[in-house]
Each structure stands twice: as structure tokens, then as C-alpha cells.
């Protein structure tokens, strides 16, 4: 039974990727056929040469890394406040943080667009990074505050009684104990940001070309082989980036490095 389930899961996850791989090596596929009529390396050799694609990969990674960093710095204090302290209006703040998951992103994006126009943040990478905070912050705050609740208030009280300031408590106690949560939430934030299309499109005004923006253009062209190859590039760059996030954070958030005793 367990074997059966594993096989099904593998099929669901792997088969579409295999199909993409197959299609990306085709010269032409005509709908509704599943298998290509003719194989070729043309699409891939074009892609490798494409400066535009390389640029969009770099743009995407820079933006999503930026979002992951900014969101971590915002959601850390937010999660500490929400999980460790009692104050009025806590429920409202929780609701506001989760609102982006409920409210359709079109409406927030349009609202943001007007706001950003006034602030002169449209068509810039910074604007896009800031705009990505909204759909990503619920995940980060939730994961961090959940972990903080597990750690409990005791650790903070103990650390303060021993003379540590709030900042020292964060650096010496919270960060090392939150390591898995920080890695998980950073990866999630990265991926959610990496796959944003609508918000990037509106705020970036088509000038900030991230991978999803490129992908949508390609989809509109309607060449299945091209779409497949772009999708694969998308998946691979996301995987590589997550791997590096995990490596970098895993190595550096550590009691040993932080406390240096």
C-alpha cells in the first residue's frame, strides 16, 4: 500500500516534468498529439544564447532574494510581538497579515499600483520587491510565530532575567532556535515571490522582466516546445536558488557563530 502511494506521488510529481523535458527537445508538436513528431536541440540552443532569458533569471533571483531578506526583517519582530506579548488589537493585526491570502491579488495590486504611482515606485525593481511583501508576509509571520510559540515565553524571560537586551535575546536565543523555521519561511517566501506574475506585471509595468513575465509572453506565442523549455528553466532556477538559501542560512544561523563563546 505504502509503495503504491509512493508510486502515485512520484507519478504526479515527475511525469509532468518528464513531459516538459520531452517536449522541450521537439522541433514541432501539433495538438492534440502527446509525442513530438521530430526531435531537435534548437529550442535549447536558442535559450542558452538568449541574453534576455539570462537577464530575467538574474532579475527574478535578485528580486526574490530581496523579498526574502526584507520579509524576514519585517516578520521577525512582528512574529515576536504576536507570539510573545499581549496587546490590544492583536486579532486585527493577525487579520491584516492574513488578508492577502483571502483578498484576490488583482484588487490589492491595483490599489498598490495607484499608491506606487504617487510614490514614484512603479517600473522599478525596488517597487516590485516592496509589492511582493504583501503576498509573502502571511507565510513568513505564521511560520515564525508558530515556532516562537513552541519555544514559549520562558526562554525570553529567562534570557532577560540573565541580563540580555531584546536584541541580544533575538540574536543569541531566538535566531539559533528558529533556524529551521527561518530556512523554511525564507524558501517559501522566495518561491511565492518567484512565481508572482500579476503584481510584478502591474507594478513593473512590463519593464521589470522576471521569469514569470517572460513565461507568460512565451505562452502567448503558443509554441509548446518553447513553453516547456521556459517552464523547465523556471523550475531549475527555483530549485537551485532554494538549495543555496538552505546552504547559506544553515551555515550562518548558528549558536556557534553568533555567540562565539
Amino acid at each position: 500500500m505504502r509503495k503504491f502511494i509512493s508510486i502515485i506521488i512520484v507519478m504526479i510529481l515527475i511525469v509532468p516534468v518528464l513531459a516538459l523535458l520531452l517536449w522541450s527537445f521537439s522541433e514541432m508538436i501539433s495538438w492534440p498529439k502527446l509525442l513530438p513528431d521530430e526531435f531537435s536541440l534548437r529550442i535549447w540552443s536558442d535559450l542558452i544564447k538568449s541574453k534576455e532569458l539570462l537577464k530575467s533569471i538574474i532579475t527574478s533571483i535578485l528580486i526574490s532574494m530581496g523579498v526574502a531578506i526584507v520579509v524576514l526583517f519585517i516578520s521577525m519582530p512582528a512574529a515576536i510581538a504576536l507570539s510573545q506579548f499581549e496587546f490590544k488589537g492583536k486579532k486585527i493585526i493577525w487579520f491584516l497579515i492574513f488578508a492577502p491570502l483571502i483578498i484576490p491579488s488583482v484588487s490589492t495590486a491595483i490599489g498598490m499600483h495607484i499608491l506606487y504611482l504617487k510614490a514614484g515606485l512603479t517600473d522599478s525593481m525596488l517597487g516590485v520587491v516592496l509589492a511582493h511583501i504583501i503576498p509573502t508576509i502571511p507565510y513568513s509571520v505564521k511560520i515564525l510565530s508558530f515556532s516562537l510559540e513552541l519555544i514559549g515565553k520562558g526562554m525570553r524571560e529567562q534570557s532577560e532575567v540573565l541580563g540580555a537586551s531584546m536584541l541580544q535575546t533575538i540574536v543569541y536565543i531566538y535566531l539559533p532556535n528558529l533556524k529551521p523555521a527561518i530556512i523554511l519561511s525564507s524558501i517559501l517566501v522566495f518561491i511565492v515571490s518567484f512565481s508572482q506574475y500579476l503584481i510584478t506585471f502591474l507594478i513593473g509595468g512590463g519593464l521589470i522582466k522576471t521569469l514569470p513575465i517572460m513565461l507568460f509572453q512565451v505562452i502567448q506565442n503558443g509554441n509548446r516546445a518553447e513553453v516547456s523549455s521556459y517552464s523547465l528553466v523556471f523550475i531549475i532556477s527555483a530549485l537551485i536558488a532554494t538549495y543555496f538559501i538552505e546552504r547559506i542560512l544553515g551555515k550562518n544561523i548558528d549558536g556557534k557563530y553568533m555567540i562565539n563563546i
Binding site: M155, L162, P176, I259
Partner: peptide, 22 residues
């Protein structure tokens, strides 16, 4: 505290030294 609350990621020496470190 009632629950001791030793810092799990620090060893005995680091736990004991904590208040001097900060």
C-alpha cells in the same frame, strides 16, 4: 524558573556564562 529553561543550543559552559557574555 520552575522549568529550568536551559538554552538547548548552548552547552553547559555557554549556558553558565550567558549572563556575563551579555
Amino acid at each position: 524558573f520552575q522549568e529550568y529553561l536551559l538554552f538547548p543550543h548552548l552547552n553547559v559552559a555557554q549556558n553558565i556564562e550567558f549572563s556575563l557574555k551579555v
